[in-house]
Every structure is written in C-alpha cells, then in structure tokens.
Design a protein around this nucleic acid. Structure first.
Lengths: 253, 253
DNA sequence: AGTAGATACGAACACCGTTCTACTCCGGTA
DNA sequence: TACCGGAGTAGAACGGTGTTCGTATCTACT
C-alpha cells in the first residue's frame, strides 16, 4: 500500500492506469501545516522555475521553499530526473488539443506548437528537462496523439505524419531551449554577450573578408524576433508536408 | 603579454584576428614532460567525451587525464563554459565546406548537415554544449557562412536563406542531442527505458482507447532508424525552401 | 646574479544529488 | 485501552561538482 515513488513513476508510464490508492493521511504532521505531497512539490518547483529559471531548481532550493530538508523529497519523488518528468508531464497536461479539422489542420498545428512554446518559455530552461524526458510518459504521449491526429486529418500519409510530429516537437523544444539560454545570458551580463541588433550588425561588419555572405546579409541575419523565426520554421516544415489540401487551398468540398 | 584566458576568449570572437603572441615557453616544467596548453586541454577533453560521454567531462576528470590538479586548468581556460566553446569551436573547424554549386545545392546542404551530425554523435552529448555556445565564435560562424553561401547559391531569397540556416543548424543540434541522450540511457540500463522496437509496439498496443491514432499507427511511429528520421526532417526543411531550382529540376541552362 | 613574471598546483569553499539512520506520529489490532 | 508496525519527516553525512586563493617553482630577461 501507499505506493513508493518508484511505483508512482511506473504508473505514469504506459503500464495501464495505475490503481490509485486513496492515500489516507498517515505519519507525523507535527509542526507542519500542510503535508508534503507530489502535487505540492511539483507546484512549488514550477514557481521556482518561473521566477528563477530551471537552473535554480535544485533539490535543496526546493526543500527550502517547502520548509523541509532535501531528503524529505525522496519519499515522494524518485529522482531529480523523476521530478523533471513530473514537470514536463504537468506542462503537457495543460496543453489543450483541438478536435482535428481537415480544413484548418495547418493553423491547428501551429496553434498547438505555439502553446507548447509559450509554456516552455514561461518556465525558462525547462525545455532542457523535456529533452531528457522519456516519451513513454502518458501526458506527453497525449500531446503526441493530438498532434498526430491533426496531421492525419490533413490527409498526410501516416508514415510522413508520424515522423513529422516528432520533428515538430523536437524543433519546438530546441527553439525554446535556445531562446531560454539566450535570455538567461543577458540577465547575468558579466559575460561578453552580444545584446542588441545594432551591436550585432557592427560586429558582422567588422568581420574579415573570409565571411562575405555574412557581411553582405548581416541585416537579414539579424532581422526578426525569435517569434518570427519560430513561425518561419514551423511554417517551413508544415508547408513541406504533402497533405491532401495543399498550400492553403480549400478542399473541393 | 602572454594573454590571459579571458583575452584568448575575446580573440576567438569577432574582435578581429587577435595578434597571436609567439607564446614563448615560460614557467615551471618540473616533473612535467609536456606543458599544459590550450590545445592539449581540448584534445584530452575530446578523448574523454569520445570514450565516456560529455557528462563525464568534468574539470577534475580532465585534470586527472592531464596528470595535474583542477586549478591548473584555469590558467588556460576561463570556465567550463569556455572549455565548451573551445570544444564546439574545434569541432566546427573540422567541418569542410564545399564551394557552392547552384546545381547541387540541396545535396551540398545535406552533406554539411550530415557532417555536423556525425561529429556531434562521435562525441556523445557534446551537442548540449553547442546549445549554450555563443554564435559569435569565429569557427561556428565559419560554418554558418558556408551554409548561407550554399543556400544563397540555390537562389533562395536572402531573408529566407538566413533564417533557414539557423533553423537547420538548430535542428541538427537538437537531433544529435536527442540521439545522444537516448544512447546513454540504454547504456545505464537501470532505468526502465524502452529499448527495442517490438517492446515499444507492445506498449503502444497496451495503451487505453484515448490514444486511437497512436495505437493505429504504432508501426509507423516506431519505424525507421534515427538516420532515417534525420534525413526526413532535413529534406522536409530543404524542400520547403522556394529556391530558383525547385524540386530537383535541373536549371534551364 | 638577481629579479620579475608566468606557470603550476594543493587546499579549501560553496554547492549539488543522494543515502543512511533515527524519530515522530497515526491507524488498526489484541 | 494499550500497543505496535509502518508511513512520513528530517538531520547528518558522503562523494561529487565548478571555482578561487595563496603559494611554490622555474624560465627569461636585465
């Protein structure tokens, strides 16, 4: 009874929906107002990541926020890796997936990807955890299922659709991670990190003649916000999909 | 004279080609056969990453391999972060860039991306360092220049070309990182990590009815090697580029 | 010959994830 | 009612990390 953290983790994977014990309150609740639960741990972790970034999320920092010791966490969580999985699990659980509409499948796809990006950027650096997280998690699998359904609704061949979903999610992760580290770089300004676009243009202009294209198209290289680049790439991948309803054409009805 | 590591790093960025001091041999070479140089540090680091993975590359492990103490490294390298930058710098320096051929620009692009992936996978997990590395490094900038030249040779509009190069390199990094962590996962098998394709198929089949598409197309979802998926995505992005010579058509000559 | 400067390195600091062990308190049972 | 097993809570500690400080050593120039 009262499953160990290891058993909880196993239940979160594909081994069927684990029979949830009612979790009767046991043990000491001495000077403690609120007992430590997995949910409380995850919520506090999210608060830390949101305000201080993912790299500030340590077991000790988390324990302090919960007014306890680091070892107390291990009664509810297997690992830090396990905690990471819980985080991206809850994050994916809050993505809402539209019912696939064959006429609007491309924008639906963009919508879900944008949701994912927004969540990742809201909790800076958390996409690093998403890279390590197992795809066997039920919550992340739910998002994959939703994406796959949308692409299939677009009439894309199943094999292409399956791989495209993986490509898209991987790119969303990568983009979010890159933006997150760039943002955290310019916060701690001690590093010689190029900040503004004009500064970047000046550096490109000062480049030796070995970089002709970079010098020539410095303006294009530094143009656009991160959001612009995000939508550009997502569109690049989606438009490449040979769906039944191509190139924004409406179906023959 | 004898630039500090900070100055060396600054020279590696875009502040022109730093005047290289002849680096006359100074200091003690007591019981030491070979002096510690930046080059020796980087080479040893590569050897460690190649054989034990990026996560095994610690300052202490590196110091042991060089038969010295950890603090000795900081005379040549600013940071671990700086060491990472040196690593991906040398890695990019070994990419050979073809002279752009407008007739073969797509395969040239694939070739360079494949080279990058091979290097990243040869040193497992090093793509993590590539994410954090500043794009202002001269060696990485050389690769970007080469890629941009190829895409431009394909007749792609400059703005599209500039962004596409970024998208491509970001995806190559992400793919390599994902493959690396997956490989390192199945080495330390203590985790309940799904290994084989058949095991994955069985898990997908055991999924609840909430995952209809995933169950239906489990075969497609688990099909293909990582290399297959890599080339699929690269082609997806490249074929989406509206170049002058579209869809494998030969130019009108 | 002597000194200045560059190099090397041991010791230590603060922090990390994790484990071991003891302790406290509750619920069910005799 | 008394008790006792077990679940939840912590404190202390272990091995590991990146990094800094102070000091010792050796070379090259004055």
């Amino acid at each position: 009874m009262s499953p160990t953290p290891q058993e909880r983790r196993a239940a979160r994977h594909q081994t069927g929906a684990g029979s949830d014990t009612p979790a009767v309150r046991r043990g000491p609740s001495g000077g403690r107002k609120k007992p430590i639960t997995v949910d409380a741990i995850v919520s506090t972790a999210f608060a830390i990541v949101e305000s201080e970034g993912y790299e500030a999320l340590t077991m000790r920092r988390l324990a302090v926020a919960l007014e306890t010791g680091p070892s107390s966490l291990y009664a509810h969580v297997v690992n830090k890796e396990d905690l990471d999985e819980l985080l991206i699990g809850r994050l994916s659980a809050e993505i809402d997936l539209p019912t696939p509409d064959p006429a609007r499948w491309r924008e639906q796809l963009i919508g879900v990807c944008t949701q994912l990006r927004d969540q990742y950027l809201r909790y800076p650096g958390i996409s690093q955890a998403a890279f390590a997280a197992a795809p066997s998690n039920l919550d992340t699998l739910r998002v994959s299922e939703g994406l796959l359904a949308i692409v299939l609704a677009g009439g894309v061949e199943p094999q292409v659709a399956a791989w495209a979903v993986d490509s898209l999610t991987l790119y969303v992760n990568a983009h979010s991670l890159e933006v997150s580290v760039a943002n955290s770089r310019l916060k701690r300004n001690d590093d010689d990190w190029v900040v503004g676009r004009d500064e970047m243009l000046r550096r490109f202009a000062a480049l030796p003649e070995t970089f002709p294209q970079t010098k020539r198209y410095a303006s294009e290289l530094t143009a656009g916000t991160t959001a612009d680049r995000f939508h550009f790439t997502i569109n690049l991948m989606i438009n490449g999909l040979p769906g039944a309803h191509q190139e924004g054409q409406t179906p023959p009805s």
